[in-house]
Every structure is written in C-alpha cells, then in structure tokens.
Design a protein around this nucleic acid. Sequence first.
DNA 1: GCATTTCAATTGTCTTACAATTAAATGTTT
DNA 2: AAACATTTAATTGTAAGACAATTGAAATGC
Lengths: 247, 247
Amino acid sequence: MDTNLKAKGELSTQIATAIRDSIISGALPVDERLPSEAELCEKFRVSRPTVREALKRLAAQNLIRTLRGATGGAFVNRLSFEEAYRQQITTSTLLLSMNEVSFETACEARYALERACVALSAERRDADHLATMRAEIHRQSQPGLSDERFCDSDVAFHRALVDGAGNPVLSYQLAGAVEAMQPLMNMITFTARDRAQIIKMHTTIADAIEARDPAVADASLVDLSAYTIQLAHDVSASRRNKPEASV
Amino acid sequence: MDTNLKAKGELSTQIATAIRDSIISGALPVDERLPSEAELCEKFRVSRPTVREALKRLAAQNLIRTLRGATGGAFVNRLSFEEAYRQQITTSTLLLSMNEVSFETACEARYALERACVALSAERRDADHLATMRAEIHRQSQPGLSDERFCDSDVAFHRALVDGAGNPVLSYQLAGAVEAMQPLMNMITFTARDRAQIIKMHTTIADAIEARDPAVADASLVDLSAYTIQLAHDVSASRRNKPEASV
DNA sequence: GCATTTCAATTGTCTTACAATTAAATGTTT
DNA sequence: AAACATTTAATTGTAAGACAATTGAAATGC
C-alpha cells in the first residue's frame, strides 16, 4: 500500500483512493486483512476519524467489509456478481429517475440489450431456464394477480430468458436495464386484455427458446418491444386527454 | 427525512440508509441542501463523527457533494451519465478481475451488447460519429503507434459506434462492457499483421454505418468478434507452449 | 479433556476542541 | 457613493482521547 498521498483534496478522500488503488491493482488480494485502524493512522499520519471516514467510503462501494472483535478488522471483499447486480440496479434506477429518461429511450435500450441475449439463450438454455419461464407464464395467467406481482413475474421471466444465455457478464449487464425499468413499467397499469397479449407473446418466446429457434425468439421479442412502447403511447395519450384523472 | 432508525446494524449505516432512501424516493430533490452536520446529530441523536461516516458513505456513491464554508453543506447530487459511466467501468473492471471471467465470456458479452447497437447506429448516426470513427481508424493506421494507444483508439472507435445509436442508456450500459475489457485486451499484443486485419474490419464497419446498412455492419461486427476470440486463443496457446516466456 | 472465565485486540461511538474555508457583513478609503 | 479591505459567522475537515461493544483466543478451573 502506497502511503505517500498526493497533496490534493481531503485527507479521507486521498486515503480511500490510495487503498482502493491497492485493491484494484491486486496488491491487496481478496480476503486480505488491511492494517488495523490504529496502524493506518500511523502509516498515513492522520487521526482515527479520518481513517474511519476513508474506510466507510470503501465499505459503501463494497470494496471492504469490517468485522469487530479480536480477530476483526477490514478485509478486502470479493465483488460478487450478486453485489454488482444490486449496485447496477440502484445506479440505473437513480439515473433513470434523475435524468428524465423517456420511457421510449429506456425501453429501446432494454429490448435492444435483451435481443443480444436471445440468440445465445436459444442455443444454450437448459431445462431449468425453460421451466422458470413456463412457471412465470403460468403465474401471469392467474386471474387475481395484482399489478405489482404481474410486473415481478414479468421481470423474473425476462431474467430467466437472459440467464439462459449462460453468460454471467451479460446477466449482470442486463440486470440493471431490466430491473431499473420496473418502476416505469409499474406506471402502466395493465388491463386484462393487455395481460393476455403479453402472455401470448411470452409463450411465443418460450416456445421459440424451447425449439432452439433464435430467429423466431428474436422476432417475438421485437413484437413485444413494439407492443410495450405502443402501450406507453396509449397511456400517455389518454392522460393528456384526461389530465384531471392522472393523479 | 425519516429520523426513526431501524434497530439493526451500525448507526452510521442506518443513517446513511435513511438519507439514501430519502434521496431515492425523491423526498430530497436534486441540489437540495441537507441539514448541517450539527443538525443531523440532533435529529438522529448521534455524535458528529457518526454522522460524518454516514455522509462519507453517500459521498462515495456520488449521491451527495459537500462544500465547506459559510454557505457550505451537503447537497444532493444529480447522478449524471458521466458519473454513472465511471462507476460502471470500475465495477465492471473489478468484477472481471476478481472473478476470473474468461476472455471468451467477457468478449462474447461485449460483442453481443455491441451488436444490439449497430442496427440503431446505422439508422441514426450523424456525421460526427462517422467522422470520429474514420479519425480513429486513421490513427490506428499510423506506424509508430504504441500498443496502449492502439487499444485506446480501439475503445474510442467502438464508443463512437455505440454513441451513434443516440440512446444514452445504451451508451451507459456499453461503457462498462467495452472499457472494462481493455485490461484484458492489452494482454493481447497485436502484431502489425493483426492490426491490419482489425483496421480492415473497422473500415468495413464504418463503411456499413455510412451506407446505413445494418445487416453488413452486424455481419462485420460478428467477424471482428470471431477474430478477436481467435487471437486470444492463439495467444494463450503460444503461452502454453512457451510457459517460461510468459513472465 | 472439557467447559468456563478472563483477557486482549479491534471496531463503534461519544466528547471536545481547533483548523480551514467560504460568503456575507462590516468597516475603510478613495 | 463606490470600490476595496477586514472581520465575522457558519460550516466542514481534522485531531486527540476516552469508553463501550464485540469477539476470538488464551488462561483457568473442574
């Protein structure tokens, strides 16, 4: 670990950066224990609160975990795909909510990325992925299902579709796109008729995946994309006509 | 801001979570000033170092920025696409380096995602994107270019290709995939012959984008993907044959 | 040999104090 | 009166020391 800090910005920031660099460069391998806070104070010649603020920054990025007790301390975290998923979902969600991204733009991105997976998924999906997709379709067909549950199931369906590609990097990238869309999707209250349409398209996709037919799977995903955007248009149009009802 | 903390985990974590929830829910809008540290101490009934650790966590996620001075304080940050790019790149880089993702897997993901953009890019690219692509191809053709600069230019080329789709969400998603690959790409030392091949493929792609021909652009991207993976195979094979030279 | 207790190391939190920074208020000079 | 310099107040940044909480390991007792 390099204890020579660049003379720029606040101390806690500099220390956090120095440790982060050591982690990224591999100088501090996964599960390695960092020096205790007291030792870090000596190394960097700063007080303990300053060191702690630096460590909290790293903890917020899941780069380290801290344990109390005799054998406690700060340890380098392995950034798991699970944690990366979560981070990406929250980042994507904030990005969409803070930058007034239109539904069309987000939707286009989502389906474009998802189309990148279907060909691979049609080739490689195993029985589990297919079973999950069928199960979610069945869940979506149940009459009493709330809108929220329907959307959850929708996400699960597409997640299985993406995971079928068997590429964890792809799954990680898609997680943000798909899940961050959910709040926007929830704004569209599906009617029973809409649900029937969507379930039909899901079934077509599942059939194509089962038949290992990438072309049909891709085509039906394009249909679903167009239909979703059309739905959004209809909703926003009806809201413009009846603005008083759009509370 | 909800000052009722759930009795779980550490105080600084709870406070950070409470404030973060307020930001995500929109209760604290962008550029809103948070209460001063002293006020937060009173609200949450904790000491100032604890409040500060919580604020540092949020600062590490770019959720807030802090300014010193009379009118200083912590302000809610607008999460810009730029910052989201950077976060995603570091996350993706760590993910790839810590989880022993194979070059094939990462490469497959990257090109699959990129293929999702070319069709849109062929439709929508403007003169600037095309000019950037041409300029980078020209740069790549220069004889004395170092391997590192060549890779930089490669990234810039693909970045322009992706940006041509005119969808910031897509650009954001791709940034991580493309840039995180660079360290892996750097492991492959391109020979002059390899460079000529790659430049040829880049030219084919640029021509197709200029002609607004999605099918040809997609096909040449597939070629480039296959060639890159082949190169990686060759490199790893030659390393297996001469392990003593792979220091 | 096993269970219990004690202990020591470490992080979590609190208190108090002071330094650094910044903008506004105030005073001073032209 | 206006421009400039100074002071002041608010706020974050850093420091030092203390104590509490936690936890594994060592010492102790049976």
